[in-house]
Simulated scan of single mutants.
Amino acid sequence: MRKVVLLLVAMLVALPMISCKEENPKNDLTTETAEILSLENNDLALAEVDIEDSISEDRYRYITAYSGLSLREYANLQSNRLAKMPYGSRVKLIQPEAERTMTVSGIAGGMDMVEFDHRSGYAFNGYLSRYFPPEQDISVEGYANELSKVFPEVTFTKTNGGTVSKPTLTETISLPGAHWHEAFFIGQRLYEFPKEFEFPLPAGKDFQLIKDSKPKRDLWVSQLEITRQDDQLQKIEYIYSSAKYSNRVSIIEKEGAILITRTEVTK
């Protein structure tokens, strides 16, 4: 009798195990694999979003002040300076200041909250640009091509004209949404305006002429001409010429964009 009882107990214990073995093992494997794949796909989707966010240029600004720009502790120019951000540095825009609360060197703006070198603070947005500044010695066309990779709305045109004895070359870069001071600093870098030529104040005489006090040895003319109307800038021109050529670099606003145009006449 004891042997019979032990046999019955053994059969009862083995029965669930046999039942489990009879289930389709492929279903268990498929379910587990599906869960893993689902998790991997979700991770990949999140990674793609993060990558897109990280390369969005709207989140970044570039320092356009030649002497650098101060990162302040608070949103005023008298607060403690946390760091000095060099010309051309890229900073992360955390919170822009929509209102124009101050004017610095003729540029109206406010204090944007930015991040630089793992520090958060405030910087005057008159010297912050969404367009990265041109590298030294880069051509206008090369710079426009680099910009258009990030900002497809940026355009560049180049045309030849004039006569056989006096051929002309005209090149124009269009910067949609740019401010006057942004375009001035870009033009100054591309065409080597003398650094003593500061961004002209919007308010002033309808026409103003500023001559280069220390022109290069081979230049006959080097001067800045400003045209205004009702204390608003209409045109900024840098004119320089030598025995071999004459150049006129014009900055104007047209249809929501700032155009920088250089016309060169070979003598």
Rank of each mutant, 00 (worst) to 15 (best):
G126I: 08
L128P: 11
S129L: 14
Y131S: 14
F132M: 15
F132T: 13
Q136W: 04
D137S: 15
I138C: 04
I138K: 07
S139P: 06
V140N: 09
A144N: 09
E146N: 07
V150R: 03
F151N: 05
P152W: 06
E153L: 06
E153N: 07
F156P: 02
F156G: 04
T159A: 11
N160P: 04
V164A: 11
L169Q: 14
T170H: 05
G177H: 07
G177R: 06
G177A: 12
A178I: 08
H179E: 15
W180L: 12
A183F: 10
L190D: 10
Y191S: 05
F193C: 12
K195T: 13
F197D: 09
F199G: 07
L201N: 14
P202K: 05
K205E: 14
D206I: 00
D206H: 08
D206L: 02
L209Q: 13
D212E: 12
D212W: 03
S213E: 14
S213A: 05
K214Y: 09
R217A: 10
D218N: 12
D218R: 06
W220K: 13
Q223K: 15
L224M: 14
I226A: 03
I226F: 01
Q229I: 03
D230M: 11
D230K: 12
D231H: 04
Q234Y: 00
E237F: 02
I239R: 13
Y240G: 03
S242C: 04
S242D: 11
A243R: 13
V249H: 02
